[in-house]
């Protein structure tokens, strides 16, 4: 499966092994995983909301765009929703290419686009209350470089 939107945790090692076994001729696999930051007790949990009817299609179109732009042998994206605790994995991407430059670039592109073009919203829950994470201007600016 190339895109998975799920509430359950995932095993990054198993995902990467499965991905590596599904691409032939790869000379490079780049992986990235985003975690819930452990901010010294300021964060109890992170609640991730999404738009179920739209999410998978939006993420898949970002993946297809990466496949078109770089010489990739494959790309997979796993993104979770629901309640996550500090230290838990939120999401991962993996890209495979014959050479590392394509794999690195495509992984960065995927991350930049997932950040501000995939319909997820993060809420931080701490001892003092709840707070929706605001989109940052830098995240929007990051898209301009592509």
């Amino acid at each position: 499966m190339t895109v998975s939107i799920q509430s359950s945790p995932f095993d990054m090692g198993a995902e990467v092994r499965r991905f590596a076994g599904s691409v032939s001729g790869a000379g490079a696999i780049v992986t990235f995983s985003g975690l819930v930051r452990n901010d010294g007790g300021k964060l109890t949990a992170m609640e991730i909301e999404h738009y179920p009817a739209m999410t998978e299609r939006a993420v898949e179109s970002i993946r297809v765009e990466a496949m078109d732009r770089w010489s990739l042998l494959g790309a997979v994206i796993v993104h979770r929703y629901g309640r996550l605790e500090p230290g838990e994995q939120i999401m991962m991407v993996a890209t495979a290419a014959r050479h590392r430059a394509d794999a690195f670039m495509a992984a960065q592109f995927l991350m930049d686009y997932l950040k501000s073009r995939a319909p997820f919203w993060k809420k931080e829950i701490g001892p003092d209350g709840e707070n929706w994470v605001a989109a940052r201007d830098e995240d929007e600016d990051a898209l301009a470089r592509w």
Binding site: M111, K115, P119, K122, A135
Partner: peptide, 8 residues
């Protein structure tokens, strides 16, 4: 309707 997305 939704706020700017904060995925990743």
């Amino acid at each position: 309707f939704f706020p700017p997305m904060t995925g990743g």
